Amino acid sequence: MSFLMPKRPAMTPPPAPPTKADPAVMAAADAEMARQRTASGRAATILTPAAGTPTAAAPKTLLGS
């Protein structure tokens, strides 16, 4: 009755996951953080105009007047 329940090879255990103290993991985390910092760009860090004070905005008007 081997056609109903064929023999399967023994499974090998999976490799151990890398630890947080692993130098490769630390380097990858540092590289990802640096990539995210550079992706934000200059516009995301400067909130005021070049003069340092907000410009005077035009007065609000009603639509159609």
Rank of each mutant, 00 (worst) to 15 (best):
E32A: 15
P49V: 00
K7T: 12
K20R: 13
A21D: 14
R8P: 01
L47V: 07
K60A: 11
A56Y: 01
A28N: 08
R8A: 10
P17R: 12
T61W: 01
A24K: 14
S40L: 14
P17H: 04
L47Y: 01
T45P: 00
P49I: 00
Q36E: 09
D22Y: 04
T53Y: 04
G41M: 08
E32P: 02
A58S: 07
R35F: 08
A34M: 05
P17D: 04
A16I: 09
K60S: 05
L47F: 01
T45M: 09
S65N: 07
P49N: 03
K7Q: 14
E32L: 14
S2T: 14
A57F: 00
M5P: 01
S40W: 02
D30F: 08
K20C: 02
A28P: 02
M1S: 09
A10F: 06
L62I: 09
P23G: 04
P15V: 07
P17S: 07
T55V: 03
P54K: 00
L62W: 05
T55A: 05
A28R: 15
G64N: 13
F3P: 02
A24I: 12
T19Q: 13
A10P: 05
M11E: 13
A56N: 03
A58D: 04
A28H: 07
A56P: 05
L63E: 04
A58Y: 04
P6Y: 03
A57R: 05
P6T: 02
A34N: 13
L4E: 08
D22Q: 06
A34S: 08
A21N: 11
K20D: 12
K20F: 10
T19I: 05
G41H: 07
P17V: 07
T61S: 04
G41K: 11
P9N: 06
M33L: 13
K20I: 03
M26A: 09
G41V: 08
L62C: 02
A29W: 11
S65E: 12
T55W: 01
A31S: 10
A29E: 15
M5L: 12
T19S: 15
A28S: 11
I46G: 00
A50D: 06
M26R: 15
T19G: 15
G64L: 10
K20M: 13
S40G: 03
P15K: 11
R42L: 13
A16V: 12
S65Y: 09
Q36S: 07
T61N: 02
L63W: 01
P59A: 09
D30E: 14
G64V: 01
P13T: 12
R8N: 11
M1E: 10
A10E: 09
S2Q: 11
A31V: 02
P49Y: 00
G41A: 09
A44C: 06
P9K: 06
P14E: 04
T55K: 06
G64H: 03
P54E: 00
A16M: 15
T55N: 06
T12F: 14
L62G: 05
R8G: 05
A34G: 02
